[in-house]
């Protein structure tokens, strides 16, 4: 079983203050902490679980800056075998179709049975890259997968639908699966793995190295334009309870009891 896992290095904005840069098109990421995209972390784990069960190899593929190599090494420490990092500032990365085209270009000459990637990215959240990648490569796909069963020449994927309903589909290999969070319990990298990962192959390539025409994947080729970013006005009707933590707790308790809410 040969697998490729596509991962992305993203900022954690869940508890961070987000500011838009004066260009109106990017956010100030200087104070963000970056790490592997949450769903991609589950995809790495799933690819390693499949390798441990069926044998084979796992390649990592990522588009990102030099700093993202920490994330790539961590995936290799968990059991992935080698990696390719694409770095090129000519990619229109606001458009998942362009990103998918680059990934397809990096994969096209490789043999694979499965490609795994997170079903959504914490930054832009299009949920589009994996499914678009499958179409570029001309292979089957299933998205939002929460259970994978590898069979002979096929894969059974349990897709998570709304309301907790699962849709089970069967696909012929090769196939792309976009992985949903919660599918497994991502491991911590073992110390020995971290040491070994330093010696594993990590190739850094540009569009030129991949034989991809930059004009095919840049802003000109993209059919959508990111015009501007802005902070939405949040209309909160909430009563904000102030004070020290104890005072806040006391006030809230009174409100709940007096209001007959508890």
């Amino acid at each position: 079983m040969k697998s490729i896992v596509c991962i992305k290095y993203v900022p954690d904005t869940s508890e961070a203050e987000v500011k838009v840069n004066p260009d109106g098109k990017t956010v100030d990421d200087s104070r963000f902490s970056f790490d592997i995209n949450d769903a991609d972390n589950y995809a790495v784990e799933e690819s390693v679980l499949i390798k441990e069960d069926k044998g084979g190899e796992v390649d990592v593929l990522s588009i990102g800056p030099k700093q993202s190599e920490v994330m790539i090494r961590m995936a290799m420490a968990k059991g992935c075998d080698r990696a390719v990092r694409v770095e090129d500032d000519r990619i229109a990365d606001h458009d998942p179709l362009m990103v998918a085209k680059v990934l397809a270009g990096a994969i096209k000459d490789k043999e694979f049975d499965l490609i795994l990637t997170g079903c959504w990215a914490d930054d832009y959240g299009h949920m589009s890259t994996g499914v678009a990648l499958a179409e570029y490569l001309g292979v089957n796909h299933a998205s939002m997968v929460k259970k994978v069963e590898v069979l002979d020449g096929k894969v059974r994927a349990h897709r998570e639908l709304e309301g907790g309903l699962m849709e089970v589909v069967e696909l012929e290999l090769p196939a792309v699966l976009t992985i949903q969070t919660g599918i497994n319990e991502p491991r911590y990298a073992p110390i020995r793995g971290i040491r070994q990962a330093q010696k594993k192959e990590l190739n850094v390539v540009s569009l030129d190295d991949l034989g991809i025409d930059p004009a095919e994947v840049g802003s000109e080729a993209s059919q959508v334009v990111l015009e501007n970013l802005y902070i939405p006005e949040v209309e909160s009707a909430a009563e904000f309870i102030e004070g020290e933590p104890d005072e806040k707790a006391d006030k809230l308790a009174s409100i709940l009891v007096k209001g007959g809410l508890v």
Binding site: S14, V18, V224, V225, E227, L229, Y230, I231, P232
Partner: peptide
């Protein structure tokens, strides 16, 4: 679009198609 943990909105335009 609403991105970055819901904290940023983006205006994205279609080119003619």
């Amino acid at each position: 679009r609403n991105i970055y943990s819901g904290k940023v909105n983006a205006t994205v335009a279609f080119k003619p198609a």
